[in-house]
Design a protein around this nucleic acid. Structure first.
Lengths: 158, 158
DNA sequence: AATAGAGTTTAGACGAGTTCTATGTTAGAC
DNA sequence: GTCTAACATAGAACTCGTCTAAACTCTATT
């Protein structure tokens, strides 16, 4: 578990300090969950986290997972990865971005955001509404599913 | 119940034919649910629908509501009104548009969509992904809540 | 290093939202 | 009017998320 370090700068030590710097105590559950989200750069639900952690020998109760996710999100170390209906997904807080959700396999892919928080559609907002956050979800087929189902534009099979 | 007709063109008869034209049988649950969503032009959850229908003398089981919503959504007569976490909301399928969700009172307001299905951010999409639908959720304070909480830009009370 | 105690974690119960299954009912074609 | 696939139903079951009270542990202090 400590013989090989993942090729990245997000070491356990640096994660530990970022937790402490945000005013939280660096407990094992928090470290492990933050590590998992940072390592995978993925979009994981509470239940997925619980299963992954259990496999790695870190069994956590469901309440703990939700507590940790709530706390880490509150201090901004992680954030919700809005992907539509279904269980809430979380991701390591990095650059603001949007999400592409494959309607076939359900995978979630990050989409860069050119002008964070201020998409071009903003001028269409009815007067009186104060927009503080904009969330864009693109839906469609990911590269893999487009090929598999023969729905790709290049494939052209009908 | 049949003495006064709501002022609109979406009569029971026209709704009935639109259900039939989409290949579904025009059953009472389907008609009533479609009528409610079309009448209110609102964003209703399964449970809200069940309560409203029960008040109108159309008691439906939960499973029936979900079945009907699934079927009507499948043929495109209604659609999910994505508003983030919480129960799924449905709305009558009209002009494509986006949603503003008030973080304070939870109300959902339609936002017109200038170029449906093709927002300006589309050119940022990584190659290989086929976008078929774009969903934008604006979050913030609605006019009423902005005033109430003294957070409005014109109010400026601190 | 030992201590204290506030901050965390835990198990289990709970509740809302949604789906599943097996059975009864009905719309629409003949 | 009859027939049958399509549909509706009740109730159980499942998933996601929250709550509570008790046990535990990190961190600062000694």
């Amino acid at each position: 578990m400590d013989a090989q370090i993942p090729s990245q700068i997000l070491t356990e030590r640096s994660l530990r300090s970022s937790i402490q710097e945000s005013g939280l105590r660096a407990t094992r559950p928090r470290l492990e969950i933050l590590k998992l989200l940072a390592d995978r750069r993925g979009h994981l639900s509470a239940e997925q986290l619980r299963i992954l952690l259990a496999k790695e020998g870190v069994p956590l109760s469901r309440a703990s997972i939700y507590n940790v996710l709530r706390d880490l999100a509150q201090v901004g170390l992680i954030g919700p990865a809005s992907a539509g209906p279904g269980p809430a997904l979380y991701e390591y807080a990095g650059t603001p971005h949007h999400h592409f959700v494959c309607v076939h396999c359900g995978s979630v892919i990050d989409v860069p955001c050119r002008q964070p928080g201020r998409p071009c559609t903003l001028d269409e907002i009815p007067p009186g509404l104060q927009v503080t956050e904009t969330q864009i979800i693109f839906r469609g087929l990911c590269a893999g599913c487009a090929e598999d189902s023969g729905l790709g534009p290049e494939v052209g099979a009908s």
